[in-house]
Amino acid sequence: MSFGTRNHNNDSPMAEINMVPMIDIMLVLLIVFMITAPLMTHSVKLQLPQASSQLNNEQIKKVFISIDEAGKYYVDNKLMDKNTLSTTLGGFSKQTELPEIQLYADQSTSYSYVAELLSLLSEQGLHKIAFVTQPENK
């Protein structure tokens, strides 16, 4: 069964593009991306607070955690190492009303220090986290 008419007497080159190899390559690439895309996202599972136009509830206890560019952690302006920080955060997580964590990070702080703190907060069950920034001067 012939779909196209081809003159066998003519020795001219075939002017058709074979699309099958290109389609095969595209399907392989699609499968590779479908498999690797979920593996490329590594994140800390947090339930971040939702923004609202209501006034802030001032009765919620706030804990101020600061990270300087050297990776030192401060809780309410008190320097803490990782073990003390973990113990302190564990104490906060056992309270009946969980406090809001206000995170102050120096602009030149490595992301690894922030990610480590977020992971520790998530492990302790502290999910109310606010990233504090300063507004731009216009």
Rank of each mutant, 00 (worst) to 15 (best):
134 Q>P: 05
127 H>A: 08
45 K>D: 05
125 G>C: 03
32 V>W: 12
102 Q>C: 04
99 P>Y: 07
28 V>G: 06
38 P>I: 03
2 S>N: 14
120 L>R: 08
38 P>C: 00
129 I>A: 02
47 Q>C: 07
74 Y>H: 06
69 E>M: 06
60 I>T: 08
130 A>Q: 11
22 M>G: 12
15 A>S: 15
42 H>M: 09
48 L>G: 06
54 Q>I: 15
7 N>T: 01
127 H>D: 14
26 M>V: 07
47 Q>A: 10
128 K>E: 14
107 Q>C: 05
80 M>T: 06
42 H>F: 08
67 I>D: 01
75 V>G: 02
27 L>H: 05
106 D>K: 02
24 D>V: 07
42 H>D: 10
70 A>F: 09
9 N>P: 02
131 F>C: 09
3 F>C: 09
19 M>Y: 09
112 S>N: 09
126 L>P: 03
31 I>L: 15
82 K>R: 14
29 L>Q: 13
19 M>F: 12
74 Y>N: 04
22 M>F: 15
21 P>T: 04
40 M>T: 13
96 T>C: 01
22 M>C: 10
54 Q>G: 13
6 R>D: 14
98 L>C: 01
49 P>M: 01
19 M>K: 07
57 N>Q: 09
51 A>N: 12
43 S>F: 05
134 Q>A: 13
16 E>P: 01
52 S>V: 12
95 Q>M: 13
90 G>Q: 12
23 I>N: 05
98 L>V: 00
108 S>K: 14
18 N>A: 07
96 T>W: 08
35 I>M: 06
59 Q>G: 00
49 P>L: 00
